[in-house]
């Protein structure tokens, strides 16, 4: 008997099978973490938003349309959560304690970070959030523009335009790298 698909696992979870959720988490967690790492970079934020993403999956399982691509659905939740966090940070309302002081986050040892990867991550961070999420989903996660559009709730034309602008900017930033 073959392995259950993500969609089958999600259906089982929707009917109360928590073990199916844990299996889904094992399959999709690394993808979500990788996406959020490219979007947010900071490990503590990535962990927080990964948790928020799957918390949303648990809390909103009734909003999942049976048969829909679960990976795309979870990625769209991660993108929504990351976008909201970045927006709140831009407004200066995130990471503030009740006293208004910046919250001390526990320091974490950075992941092994070879020079090239750091350059790529730096360049991605320099992109506007709307372009970054399209580039990451398209280039890193390998989604088509139609799939990217579905995840982000935009048209595929808008996804292509954002990607085009993002790649243009990345080329400027990474002009000295070979194999561009």
């Amino acid at each position: 008997m073959g392995e259950a698909s993500n969609e089958e696992l999600m259906s089982r979870f929707c009917t109360g099978d928590s073990a199916a959720f844990r299996t889904l988490f094992g399959r999709l967690g690394p993808m979500v973490q990788r996406f959020l790492r490219s979007m947010l970079r900071e490990p503590t934020l990535v962990e927080d938003v990964t948790q928020t993403t799957f918390l949303s999956v648990v809390r909103s399982r009734d909003r999942y349309t049976p048969g829909a691509d679960v990976a795309r659905w979870v990625l769209s939740i991660a993108a929504n959560a990351a976008r909201d966090l970045l927006r709140h940070r831009a407004l200066g309302v995130e990471q503030l304690s009740s006293t208004g002081d910046a919250v001390e986050r526990p320091s974490q040892a950075p992941l092994p970070d070879p020079g090239l990867r750091r350059r790529l991550e730096d360049a991605l961070q320099a992109l506007p959030e709307s372009q970054r999420e399209v580039v990451v989903l398209h280039k890193v996660e390998g989604l088509t523009f139609e799939e990217v559009a579905g995840v982000l709730g935009i048209t595929s034309t808008a996804a292509r335009i954002r990607a085009h602008r993002g790649y243009g900017r990345l080329k400027e930033l990474l002009v000295d790298l070979e194999g561009m």
């Binding site: 844990r22 799957f54 990867r117 790529l120 990451v136």
Partner: peptide, 28 residues
Amino acid sequence: MKFDELKDSAFDPASLERSLAALEGELA
């Protein structure tokens, strides 16, 4: 572009385990 570098970047299993542990309460 060399985005495979990001694709292959090591994820953090310990962080995922912590996240899953934190979700157990919600699952119950």
